Computed example of a mutant assay.
Amino acid sequence: MSQTALNRIYITLSGLVVAFIVLPLAIIVWSSFFANRILTFPPSGYTLDWYRRAWEMDAFRDGFLVSMQTAAVATCISLALGIPASLAIVRYPFPGRDFIQTLLLSPMIVPGIVGGAALFIAFIELEVLFDAQIAGTVGGLLMAHSLIALPWTVRLVTASLTGADRSIEEAAASLGASPLVIFRRVTLPSIRSGVIAAALFSFVISFIDLEKSLFLVGPGRTTLQIALVNYLEWNLDSTVAAVATVQIFIIGALLIISDRYAKLSRVF
């Protein structure tokens, strides 16, 4: 088989994979404008009323705000813990380093529903031990979301640190710069792309999480994903598609902005 034929096969297969990924998203965006009272095809017309309806519903509006706040705080916590952890893993060999690195990445391996149930059981055991409520509180929810965001921070910042040039840091140290100054003025700018990518993916992973929130969210509070599941139990219209479309554009905008300043292709 000639090289030209192989290239055509490769391009065709790549196009099919991209279509397989993008087509469902395009259908969701399209269906969010259907005028049908019940989600059916073909549409009888098009309207923007589903977006207005979604925002007017307290469950979606409040769930969106809770998800945004939770994801923002979880991202900050994951960065505060993940950057020092990555520095220790890459720069300072110590016994058990490989085990700790594997342990930090374990939330990426465990299925979400299993992790949510395990965290809920662990929180209940801690409540019995310390006589303090954890499950169903804002603090418990933030701990859970920070836990699922932390592996992305460790993975991406570690990758950036591994590829960073240490000779610049050594030169700064030889000129009398303190470790804190070296980190702030040399190390952090050199891994900026990894930190921004870690913040982005930590935010997205927390924002779209369902399993941990389902087990740990408290009474009177709900995340956007739980609100979507509850709505789908009794309704089948384009309101859910409208909410999903907003999520798609938010995540897409974050990707574009981050790539503009951090060039995510250099990280992955």
Rank of each mutant, 00 (worst) to 15 (best):
residue 106 S to A: 15
residue 207 F to A: 02
residue 66 V to K: 04
residue 150 L to Y: 09
residue 168 I to R: 01
residue 130 F to H: 09
residue 194 G to W: 01
residue 254 L to M: 13
residue 11 I to A: 13
residue 84 P to W: 06
residue 258 S to H: 09
residue 25 L to F: 15
residue 198 A to L: 04
residue 7 N to W: 15
residue 120 F to N: 09
residue 207 F to N: 03
residue 41 F to D: 09
residue 12 T to V: 10
residue 203 F to D: 00
residue 35 A to N: 08
residue 176 G to Y: 13
residue 8 R to A: 10
residue 31 S to A: 11
residue 192 R to F: 13
residue 123 F to N: 02
residue 118 A to K: 06
residue 197 A to H: 00
residue 194 G to A: 03
residue 201 F to D: 01
residue 64 F to W: 08
residue 78 S to G: 09
residue 170 E to V: 04
residue 39 L to N: 11
residue 88 A to K: 07
residue 185 R to A: 14
residue 39 L to D: 12
residue 170 E to S: 13
residue 71 A to E: 01
residue 158 T to V: 01
residue 127 E to D: 11
residue 156 L to S: 02
residue 120 F to C: 09
residue 57 M to L: 11
residue 148 I to R: 06
residue 187 T to E: 01
residue 178 S to L: 10
residue 193 S to A: 14
residue 23 L to I: 14
residue 23 L to D: 11
residue 140 G to A: 11
residue 65 L to C: 06
residue 209 D to I: 06
residue 71 A to K: 08
residue 247 Q to S: 07
residue 246 V to W: 00
residue 21 I to T: 14
residue 231 Y to G: 04
residue 72 A to R: 05
residue 98 D to I: 04
residue 266 R to G: 10
residue 161 L to Y: 10
residue 119 L to Q: 01
residue 230 N to D: 07
residue 251 I to A: 15
residue 37 R to S: 14
residue 104 L to P: 03
residue 58 D to S: 06
residue 242 A to M: 12
residue 167 S to W: 13
residue 44 S to W: 15
residue 38 I to G: 09
residue 48 L to S: 12
residue 225 Q to C: 02
residue 113 I to R: 00
residue 174 S to I: 05
residue 3 Q to H: 12
residue 218 G to W: 10
residue 83 I to L: 10
residue 219 P to S: 06
residue 115 G to Q: 09
residue 161 L to Q: 03
residue 77 I to R: 00
residue 157 V to Y: 08
residue 12 T to Y: 15
residue 200 L to M: 15
residue 5 A to G: 15
residue 94 F to Y: 09
residue 24 P to Q: 04
residue 203 F to T: 00
residue 228 L to T: 05
residue 148 I to G: 02
residue 76 C to E: 10
residue 217 V to K: 03
residue 215 F to S: 00
residue 43 P to E: 05
residue 10 Y to G: 04
residue 87 L to G: 06
residue 66 V to W: 02
residue 4 T to P: 06
residue 40 T to M: 03
residue 14 S to P: 12
residue 62 D to R: 06
residue 196 I to A: 00
residue 39 L to Y: 11
residue 217 V to L: 08
residue 267 V to N: 05
residue 153 T to W: 06
residue 36 N to Q: 10
residue 268 F to I: 13
residue 241 A to K: 02
residue 216 L to N: 01
residue 171 A to C: 13
residue 165 D to G: 14
residue 207 F to V: 04
residue 251 I to V: 14
residue 141 L to I: 10
residue 88 A to S: 10
residue 166 R to S: 12
residue 190 S to W: 00
residue 127 E to W: 03
residue 96 G to M: 03
residue 229 V to H: 08
residue 197 A to M: 00
residue 14 S to E: 13
residue 57 M to S: 11
residue 139 G to R: 11
residue 243 V to G: 00
residue 49 D to H: 15
residue 229 V to N: 03
residue 106 S to P: 04
residue 177 A to C: 15
residue 262 A to T: 14
residue 257 I to K: 07
residue 107 P to A: 06
residue 99 F to K: 04
